[in-house]
Design a protein around this nucleic acid. Structure first.
Lengths: 208, 208
DNA sequence: AGCGACCACATACCGGGTATACATATCCCC
DNA sequence: GGGGATATGTATACCCGGTATGTGGTCGCT
């Protein structure tokens, strides 16, 4: 949903055509998330379908110009005033991977963690190198710089989390070994135990 | 791609049927990311199409059992040994939102930041409340606990980043005001300046 | 004239994700 | 014991995000 609202926000500033929207989006985010032109056009047609934008008029050079509607302006306003929901965070590939690595036997979790930390720290190096280039004071430069900072903060948190995981796994190693033998001789009993222990039903889960 | 590999990893442990795969996945992640059953079946059919898993046999109760293939085992192994790429990070809605809020005139950035911080800190409260419930020592409990920690670390980093943004915006306020007048009287010149300054071409961007 | 780049728009296609249909089985309760 | 709510289990339709590709036009270069 972020691309849809971002395009709307750009259209609120000024009517634009598709190609221009992509350029403006990438300028502001420093091409951190390159935006495929095709997605711009499909998104625009959906915006038009939903009555949030309206395209058709041509400018002096024959471009198909899209302009925001009143409903679209409302949508942008609520987007900016409503915080992004943290109740259903997007799937985190790394967290899923580690959760599986811990629970599936025969996976060398320590190595997984170490390799990931190396990769993330390498990414951090790239970010700090890029930061040296983003020293302008223009609004777009500032925005890009903030986006970069967000990547840095996220990567640093990831490294800290990996360290934390290592520590917890080391600490729990002894207990886990005990638990281990209980797990291996009866997988189905474990499963039943899980189902019984969570009062939650299938319908509860599908309903939300 | 994370769901696909997660299901494969579960199948490596033991042949399973669709419904069971969902239960196992949610047990390990503590229903942090509820998994729609439909996605399990579509993913399984894609896995079968790609030769990574193979289903058809029925168990004693008539369930459609899927089992991993050798190619699937290879896929899981490479998944666990290859770190998740940070070169093209997934789109961060909040970062995009702030980048737009900063560059589009007429948006109260300070309020956006404050409201987001409140929401994120509320989420943090929920996480710590949940953490008190996850005190078991079983493998699945440990995995869920680690997933929760990852959410906590990410949320904390987000709050820190928001503080950081506030500070930078305050510091740059004076310069921005100067820049402001230059921006408002010639948007197209800014655009041209951007295009000229980045040596990168459209083809470069689409090619990668 | 021909080649290659860039600009601009449009569409096909795929995978992730949700909602829903449909069929059994179980359980509770009047 | 019949019936409604609930749970299990599989399958499919649909939408959206995202990528790749097709088509046509302009400009500059050799």
């Amino acid at each position: 949903m972020s691309v849809k609202h971002a395009l709307l926000a750009l259209l609120e500033q000024e009517p634009m055509y598709g190609y221009q929207l992509r350029a403006e989006f990438e300028q502001r985010t420093g091409t951190t998330w390159p935006l495929n032109v095709g997605q711009v056009y499909t998104t625009l047609s959906r915006l038009e379908r939903d009555g949030l934008a309206q395209g058709g008029g041509e400018d002096t050079e024959g471009h198909v110009i899209y302009r925001i509607t009143d409903a679209g302006r409302d949508e942008v306003a609520t987007w900016f005033t409503t915080p992004v929901a943290r109740t259903q965070p997007p799937r985190d590939e790394l967290a899923i991977k580690l959760a599986l690595a811990v629970t599936v036997p025969g996976v060398d979790v320590a190595t997984v963690i170490q390799q990931q930390r190396s990769a993330t720290m390498a990414a951090l190096q790239d970010y700090t190198r890029l930061k040296r280039q983003a020293t302008g004071t223009a609004r777009a430069e500032l925005a890009w710089s903030l986006v970069l900072d967000s990547l840095v903060f996220a990567a640093e948190a990831e490294v800290r989390w990996l360290d934390h995981c290592e520590a917890r796994l080391r600490r729990a190693a002894a207990e886990l070994d005990v638990q281990n033998s209980r797990l291996t001789d009866g997988t189905s009993s474990v499963k039943r135990e899980f189902r019984r222990s969570t009062g939650e039903t299938h319908a509860d889960r599908t309903r939300r």
